[in-house]
C-alpha cells in the first residue's frame, strides 16, 4: 500500500515530476535570483570600473581606449597628486582606529545587553538606531553637532566654563571641530564608531548568548573570576563571530565616502581625505573618470586579501 504522499506525487504529470525530482536543476533555479543580483549589481559594475581604470575615459566620453596602467601611475605620482597618498594613509588611520574602538566598545556593550534587566528590549532597539538611520542623514546631524558656530558641544562647554576667554579650552568661543586637523580626524573617526558600533555589538551579543550556560557555570564553580571567564572562556568562543563583525566593519569603513563627504569634504586642506572621496572628486567632479576608477580600485586587492584571511581564520577557529 502506497502512502497518500506518494499517491499525490504519482498523480502529477511526468514533466512536473521530473522537474521536482531533479535536485540539481531546482537548486540552480533557486540560486538564480541571487546570482543574477550579484552579477548585475556587483560583478558588472566592478568589471566596468576595471575597464575604466585601464582606459582613457572621461565623464563626457566613456568609449574605451586602453592605456594600460597609465592612470595608476598618474594617481600615484607624489608631486602631481599628493592628495592620493594622504587619502591612502587617512583611509587606513580612520578605518583601523575606528574598528579598534568599535571592537572594544562592542564587547562591553554586548556584555551589558546580554544581561537580563528590565527594559532590555527598548535598550537594544535604541542602540540599533544609528545603524538603522541612513548614514547620510545621521552624518548631517553630526555636521550640525560639529558646526563651527552653532555646535551644541561648544554651547555646553561655554556653559560649564571650559570654553571662552580665560578658560581651559579658550580663548576662542568655538572648538572648530572640523577646522583643526586633529579634531577633524577625530570627528570623522567618532562618526564611524557611532555608525558601526550597533552592528558589531549585536553580532557579538548573538555570539555571547549562544555560549552554553554550562561552560560559564562550570568555570564559576571552578572559582574563575569574571575577567578570567570573559577572556579565557567567552572571548575564545566568540572569536569566529567577532572576526565577522570586524570584517564587516573594515569593509564598510574602508569603502565609505559619505561620512567624509558630508562632514569635511576632505578638509581642512586635504587632511581628512579618503580614497573614496578622492576618487569622486577626481573622477566625477574633476571629469577624469579613468583616474577616479583607478583610485577607487586601489584598495580592492588589499581588501580581498583581508577578507580571505579573516574568513579563513574564522573558519579555522570555528573548526578548532
Amino acid at each position: 500500500m502506497q502512502s497518500p504522499t506518494v499517491n499525490r506525487v504519482a498523480g502529477r504529470s511526468p514533466g512536473r515530476r521530473r522537474l521536482a525530482d531533479r535536485d540539481g536543476l531546482l537548486g540552480a533555479l533557486f540560486m538564480a535570483p541571487a546570482i543574477i543580483y550579484i552579477v548585475a549589481l556587483v560583478a558588472v559594475p566592478f568589471a566596468i570600473a576595471i575597464a575604466f581604470s585601464l582606459a582613457d575615459v572621461t565623464v563626457g566620453d566613456t568609449s574605451l581606449t586602453f592605456v594600460g596602467l597609465q592612470n595608476f601611475r598618474r594617481v600615484m605620482d607624489k608631486e602631481a597628486m599628493p592628495q592620493f597618498w594622504r587619502a591612502l594613509s587617512d583611509t587606513f588611520i580612520f578605518t583601523l582606529t575606528a574598528q579598534a574602538i568599535v571592537i572594544v566598545l562592542a564587547n562591553i556593550l554586548a556584555l551589558v545587553l546580554a544581561q537580563d534587566f528590565k527594559g532590555k528590549w527598548i535598550a537594544r532597539m535604541l542602540i540599533m538606531l544609528p545603524w538603522a538611520t541612513p548614514i547620510s542623514l545621521g552624518t548631517i546631524g553630526w555636521l550640525w553637532i560639529f558646526d563651527s558656530k552653532f555646535s551644541p558641544i561648544d554651547w555646553v562647554l561655554q556653559l560649564v566654563g571650559l570654553l571662552g576667554p580665560d578658560t581651559l579650552l579658550g580663548p576662542g568661543r568655538h572648538m572648530n571641530f572640523l577646522g583643526r586637523e586633529e579634531l577633524a580626524m577625530a570627528s570623522v573617526i567618532l562618526v564611524h564608531v557611532w555608525r558601526m558600533l550597533p552592528l558589531s555589538a549585536v553580532i557579538l551579543m548573538a555570539g555571547l548568548t549562544s555560549i552554553p550556560q554550562d561552560l560559564i557555570d562550570q568555570a564559576e564553580v571552578d572559582g574563575a573570576s569574571f575577567w578570567r571567564i570573559h577572556f579565557q572562556v567567552r572571548l575564545p568562543l566568540i572569536l569566529p563571530i567577532m572576526s565577522i563583525a570586524l570584517l564587516f566593519g573594515l569593509i564598510f569603513t574602508f569603502g565609505d565616502m559619505v561620512v567624509v563627504f558630508v562632514l569635511t569634504r576632505g578638509g581642512p586642506v586635504y587632511y581628512t581625505q579618503v580614497l573614496a572621496t578622492w576618487a569622486y572628486f577626481t573622477g566625477i567632479e574633476g571629469g577624469a573618470l579613468a583616474q577616479g576608477a583607478a583610485i577607487a580600485l586601489f584598495l580592492f586587492p588589499l581588501l580581498l586579501v583581508v577578507a580571505f584571511l579573516v574568513l579563513r581564520n574564522a573558519r579555522r577557529t570555528e573548526i578548532a
Partner: peptide
Amino acid sequence: MTEEVFAWTAASNNQGLIAGE
C-alpha cells in the same frame, strides 16, 4: 578671521552673516 574658515561648507558664510557673526 578665525579657524572656522577652514571648515566651512558652501552655506557657512551665509549662516554667519545671517547670525550677525
